[in-house]
């Protein structure tokens, strides 16, 4: 008798745990015989709570530590290569395309792992003010970010939006590609195995159109990244985000999925510039009045 295959249950990822959606709803992505959670606004709300709680400690990690954790993600992905490839194939990629996407994704994690302890040096400044003060500007994570992954990609897209957010010290709720959600769940398992603290990355599957109105109106979300080119959606997000002036960014899918998806400016976009002043005592220095 042939052995009965063990099928995977695809769950969402909130606070380092893998619950099913609280709503109990599922959907079947087109052409794939898999039940995927259709997350609700309450799932999103729960994710924001854990993301908010996890963010300060994540930002407080040393840049070196964050860098190693991102690199660890790449290491873990190599071990899961076969699973990612088969999931990508299941979602319509050819073997070659799947292979390339996994390679590109792992390389992208390595790329952003390397930026964790460098982007500050590129984007910070010491400002030569015309008074006796030391003045410097540094980047600081915006806080809780919500990003929607590009619809066209199951793995590289969501990996890029996660990497760019967490490399810069943010915590994140990532909304997976609705039609190609499988890799996002497997990626969550990788993240959970890679010393990423629970709550720093949360991944929801489901219907973006359903979730976005709740995301954009959530008062405790600092920034929203939309990957896509639906003009109507972009206008709507910009309009509704005004309630708490959350930062709205939209990227074209092309930019994220091509080589252009590798740039420290993506990290910068999810950071605020903070400028600090402090007096410089001049006692004993040239021109001192004491």
């Amino acid at each position: 008798m042939a052995r009965l295959e063990i099928k995977k249950t695809y769950k969402i990822y909130i606070g380092g745990k893998f619950p099913r959606t609280e709503s109990g709803r599922f959907y079947n992505p087109k052409g794939i015989d898999v039940n995927v959670c259709q997350s609700s606004r309450k799932d999103f709300r729960n994710a924001v709570v854990v993301a908010r709680a996890a963010q300060p400690a994540w930002a407080g990690r040393t840049a070196y530590n964050r860098s190693q954790i991102l690199y660890r993600i790449a290491e873990m992905m190599e071990g899961r290569r076969a699973q990612f490839i088969s999931e990508l194939e299941l979602q319509g990629s050819s073997k070659k395309e799947a292979d390339e996407e996994v390679n590109a994704t792992i390389d992208r994690w390595v790329y952003y792992a390397g930026w964790c302890d460098k982007y500050q040096q590129i984007f910070s400044s010491v400002n030569p003010v015309a008074s006796n003060h030391f003045n410097f500007s540094v980047l600081e994570p915006m806080g809780v970010v919500t990003s929607t992954a590009p619809e066209e990609s199951s793995l590289l897209g969501i990996s890029t939006i996660i990497a760019t957010a967490i490399a810069g010290g943010n915590s994140l709720i990532a909304i997976a590609s609705e039609s190609k959600p499988l890799c996002s769940v497997t990626l969550a398992e990788v993240l959970n195995d890679s010393d990423v603290p629970g709550g720093v990355v949360n991944i929801l599957t489901g219907n973006k159109d359903e979730l976005l109105p709740h995301i954009v109106q959530h008062m405790d979300v600092n920034a929203l990244v939309y990957c896509g080119s639906d003009k109507k959606v972009i206008i709507d997000l910009k309009e509704k985000s005004a309630d708490n002036l959350k930062r709205i960014t939209h990227y074209s899918t092309d930019a994220i999925l091509s080589q252009r998806g590798e740039s420290p400016y993506f990290i910068k976009t999810l950071n605020e510039v903070k400028t600090t002043w402090h007096p410089i005592e001049k006692v004993g220095a040239v021109g001192s009045s004491y």
Binding site: N132, H133, P279, I280, E281, K282, V283, S289, Y290
Partner: peptide
Amino acid sequence: VDQVGIEDRIA
């Protein structure tokens, strides 16, 4: 005592 603050005051 903050010297720069004192200088500001004097200014």
